[in-house]
Design a protein around this nucleic acid. Structure first.
Length: 298
DNA sequence: GAGATTTGACCCAG
DNA sequence: CTGGGTCAAATCTC
């Protein structure tokens, strides 16, 4: 496990350096940036690979709590058992806890992560002052998107929310997929968009509205393709957001529900435009920097 | 009327 | 048995 970790560290450091270079390069010569991008993707892809190896090797490793903690589903907050429970009959459509492919817990001030969520439950939590709200991706059914998130207000810091992202977005709605696509791009693209990449949907917690006109369909495209194509593959890059429906609709809800932000955020407004400029892309690499720093520090 | 939210009940895992 | 995750009917909003 040391070798993989060393590998991770090396690659992440390298990635960070390259990203820095790229940032400078892009100001002057966008073409040269392409090469650096390849190297970055390669470095990150190797790092991710190594990280998985390390994670598989070591079961216990969790810092008390930094800004965000990343777990590898297998050990993450999931309680699971043999799940032979199905034998119990067909009660209510086999109510089993979702198997978590990836789990990320973040502390955020804003619940708006630019993705479309639908609330499906809320629970009082033992030993917690605040209840926990459960969200699933709006496209859970129409696009078999398994992404979920849980939101709970921090007990100690009322202004903060503890947001747990479970699973990754498989949907291809730009509104819901942009954030994850950043990471998908990082590793998915780098790894040839191969399956199984349990990438964490790193919703940029603090992203300001990122809408631009600059069309980099390359970046966008690879990102979207990185998202596992489920059913109905290559239709147009859909816009399941029919005007006036869900997103906008809930945006209004968000505005009019001052109580517990959750209610308003049930399906959060989308903040990303249909296209993202490369510069903005870089900004999100910066949030990846958090992860990099975190890994490097441990 | 469609889609989202609320909320009590159900079910599973520890 | 209990706590927590999910379901689904009722309700709400646009």
């Amino acid at each position: 496990m040391e070798a993989p970790l060393a590998q991770v560290t090396d690659d992440l450091i390298k990635g960070r350096e390259l990203a820095t270079q790229l940032q400078g390069l892009l100001r002057d010569s966008p073409e040269a940036g392409g090469l650096i991008v390849d190297q970055i993707l390669h470095a990150f892809s190797r790092a991710i690979h190594a990280a998985r190896a390390a994670a598989a090797a070591s079961t216990s490793e969790r810092s008390s709590d930094v800004r965000s903690e990343v777990t590898d589903g297998a050990s993450g907050g999931a309680k699971r058992k043999s799940a032979s429970a199905a034998g119990g009959g067909n009660r209510r459509a086999c109510r089993r806890r979702t198997q978590q492919s990836s789990v990320v817990t973040k502390s955020m001030e804003s619940l708006d992560d630019g993705q479309a969520w639908r609330k499906y439950g809320q629970k009082e939590i033992h030993n917690s002052k605040h209840s926990r709200a459960y969200f699933r991706c709006t496209h859970k059914y129409d696009q078999q998107c398994a992404a979920q998130r849980q939101v709970q207000r921090c007990d100690d810091d009322e202004g903060m929310f503890r947001v747990t992202y479970i699973g990754v977005h498989a949907c291809r709605d730009p509104a819901a997929a942009v954030a994850p696509h950043l990471l998908h791009h990082l590793s998915g693209a780098a790894q040839g968009l191969h399956a199984g990449c349990h990438l964490i949907s790193f919703a940029p917690g603090s992203v300001a509205t990122a809408t631009h006109g600059t069309t980099t369909s390359t970046a966008m495209g690879s990102g979207l393709q990185g998202i596992k194509p489920e059913s109905g593959d290559q239709e147009e890059v859909l816009s399941s957001r029919t005007p006036g429906s869900s997103a906008l609709h809930s945006a209004a809800a968000a505005a009019t529900a001052p109580t517990w932000p959750d209610q308003g955020d049930v399906t959060s407004t989308r903040q990303y435009g249909g296209t993202v400029s490369f510069g903005e892309y870089l900004d999100d690499y910066a949030s990846l920097g958090d992860l990099v720093s975190y890994v490097l520090d441990h």
